[in-house]
Amino acid sequence: MKRTIPVLIASIAGLVLIIAHFVPPAQSWGDEVNTWFQILAAFAFFLGGGSLLKMHLKRISDQQEGWGFSAVTLLAFGITLIVGIFKLGVLPSETYPTKPWSGEYLGDGGALWWIYQYLFTPLNATMFALLAFFISSAAFRAFRAKNTEAMILLVTATIVLVGRTYAGAFLTEGFNPHWQLAAIIDEWFMSVFNTAGARAIKIGIALGVVSTSLKVLIGTDRSYLGSEE
């Protein structure tokens, strides 16, 4: 029973979405199912928040190694939550100037806006910027001419890397008065080989998605529920 009901719910929701795609009068049913998922996902935030609090409070109370980080996490969580919910420092919107809470959550000058602008944005950008460093160490390690395929990959990568900058134009200036040769070769690699490969992978993925979804819908694959039966 514990497994049958979730499978039944998954099957019904899936079928409704399929029918909604092909039958215009059933389109609103599909919207309804999607709305239900959003409601469920919103409730799940409580589960997630609860898990987060539990884990970090335990670390702090057990004085586990690095418990200070847990304290910082909980402090940041609490401050952001309170500031966001109570819209601290947010001015009322122009449409409803007499309603104190009518302003946007991220209204200019508000406390949440300040957190977003001066903490969240730089922290996020820093994490993303790490990619520049990781890509260099990964490229250094991965592009070794160990065999013919690796050699092709290496040469292609070098051409695309150079072709995507002014260096490509500068190096091929002599071949073409409009100095676009490197960009043209790069574009050709991307549009022909890369797109052909990407399309093949996408077709395979699409069929995999259809097959997996069908197995979930008919209940053949229940391993995501923790059961092989």
Binding site: S136, F140, T158, L161, V162
Partner: peptide, 19 residues
């Protein structure tokens, strides 16, 4: 972006020389 790409190309070359 230009210098970053050139550095990666250089690293690829150095990596292969070492290999």
């Amino acid at each position: 972006q230009l210098l970053g790409h050139l550095l990666i190309v250089m690293l690829i070359v150095v990596g292969n020389v070492l290999y």
